[in-house]
């Protein structure tokens, strides 16, 4: 059922979601003082698609 067109259309989105996740994770690793435990944020970022990284950037990041 996954024809080539579907893959071509869905792939960019998966790439973007992945990129967003990586941005958030890289930032989290470098963040000396996130708003809450790091492992918790790592879990949120990885498990919650799109929303997880946004939550991290808005609430968890703190301007370090």
């Amino acid at each position: 059922m996954m024809d080539e067109r579907t893959i071509l259309l869905v792939l960019p989105i998966l790439v973007l979601q992945f990129a967003l996740m990586i941005f958030a994770l890289v930032d989290l690793i470098k963040n000396p003082n996130p708003n809450g435990p790091k492992w918790m944020w790592a879990a949120i970022i990885v498990l919650l698609n799109i929303i997880g990284p946004i939550l991290y950037f808005v609430i968890g990041r703190r301007n370090y």
Partner: peptide, 14 residues
């Protein structure tokens, strides 16, 4: 450096 210029557009694209 706080990635706003990347992640906000990504959210809008999604």
């Amino acid at each position: 450096r706080n990635y706003k210029i990347f992640w906000i557009p990504v959210v809008f694209i999604l």
